[in-house]
C-alpha cells in the first residue's frame, strides 16, 4: 500500500533522510519510531507531497506521492504533528470545509462533521473557535479532518502527542477500530508503549537512516533477545550514536 524506495531528502549539505526503502502492506498499522530530529516528519511530509524527494520515490496505492499528489490525497488522511487552524472559524466549520473540499455535498459534510465531533468527544466545543482549543483538542480536530473523507490510508504524525491519558486511550481505540476495518495506518511516534500496543510492524529511524524494521517480535529476537521494545529502541539508536562519537573522537 505504501512503498518507499531509496527515498532521501537533503537540505543543502545536511542530509535529513537517507535512502529509506521499505513498504507497508494494506491493513497494517506501521509504527515509525525515532528520537527527536531523526527525520520522521520529513519522511511523512514527503509522503504527503509537501516536500520533494532529493532521491528515490515514495508511492501510495501505486501512485507516486510527488507526481500524483492530488490523487494520493484522495486516498490519504493526514494529521500533522502540530495542527494549526484558521482564526475566527469554529471547529465544526473547519471540519465541514475540509469535507466539502474533498467533494462531499454540504449536507454530507455537515453530517460527517457532527458525527466525527461526537465520536471524538468534541461535540461541546464544536461551536468554539478552533484557535481557542487546547493542544489535545486541536489534535483531535486534526484527526477528524483526516478521517472525514473515510480514506483508506491514514498518515499520522505523533497522533497522541499532547493528549491526556483518557484522550490518548480514546484515540488509540479509534485507530484500532480503523485498522480493524482494513485501513492502512502509518504513524510516527516516540511513545514506545503506544507503538507496542497499536502497531503490527515497526521501523526505527535514526539520523535519517532506517536502522531496524520488522514485526515487534522479530525485532526483539534480532536486536535484544528477550528485551523490551525500549531496549530495542535504545540499542538501535545508540549503536549509531556510539559509532559517530568514536568517529568524531578519532
Amino acid at each position: 500500500m505504501i512503498e518507499l524506495d531509496g527515498l532521501g531528502k537533503r537540505y543543502g549539505e545536511f542530509v535529513a533522510v537517507r535512502d529509506l526503502t521499505f513498504s507497508v502492506a494494506s491493513g497494517e498499522v506501521f509504527g515509525f519510531l525515532g528520537p527527536n530530529g531523526a527525520g520522521k516528519t520529513t519522511t511523512i511530509r514527503m509522503l504527503m507531497g509537501i516536500l520533494v524527494p532529493s532521491s528515490g520515490w515514495a508511492a501510495i496505492d501505486g501512485l507516486d506521492c510527488n507526481l500524483a499528489r492530488v490523487e494520493v490525497k484522495r486516498r490519504v488522511g493526514y494529521l500533522p504533528d502540530a495542527p494549526m487552524f484558521y482564526d475566527f472559524l469554529r471547529g465544526r466549520e473547519i471540519l465541514e470545509f475540509v469535507g466539502e473540499m474533498h467533494g462531499q455535498t454540504r449536507k454530507d459534510a455537515r453530517a460527517n462533521a457532527v458525527r466525527l465531533l461526537d465520536e471524538l468527544g468534541l461535540a461541546d466545543a464544536a461551536e468554539e473557535y478552533a484557535v481557542n482549543y487546547s493542544m489535545g483538542m486541536k489534535k483531535k480536530l486534526g484527526l477528524a479532518c483526516a478521517l472525514i473523507h473515510d480514506p483508506s490510508v491514514l498518515i499520522l504524525d505523533e497522533p497522541t502527542n499532547g493528549l491526556d491519558p483518557r484522550a490518548a486511550h480514546e484515540v488509540q481505540h479509534l485507530l484500532l477500530g480503523s485498522a480493524a476495518r482494513g485501513k492502512t495506518i502509518f504513524l510516527s511516534t516516540h511513545l514506545l508503549d503506544m507503538a507496542e500496543r497499536l502497531c503490527t510492524r515497526l521501523g526505527i529511524i535514526h539520523k535519517g537512516e532506517l536502522v531496524a524494521v520488522g514485526a515487534l517480535d522479530a525485532l526483539r529476537r534480532e536486536v535484544v533477545p528477550g528485551g523490551s521494545l525500549e531496549e530495542v529502541f535504545l540499542r538501535a539508536t545508540q549503536a549509531e550514536e556510539g559509532a559517530d562519537m568514536s568517529g568524531g573522537a578519532a
Binding site: M48, P80, M84, C145
Partner: peptide, 15 residues
Amino acid sequence: SEGNALWILVSLPRP
C-alpha cells in the same frame, strides 16, 4: 492569510 493552517489545503485532493 492561510498562514500556519496551510497544511489543511496541502492535504486536500485539489491542486
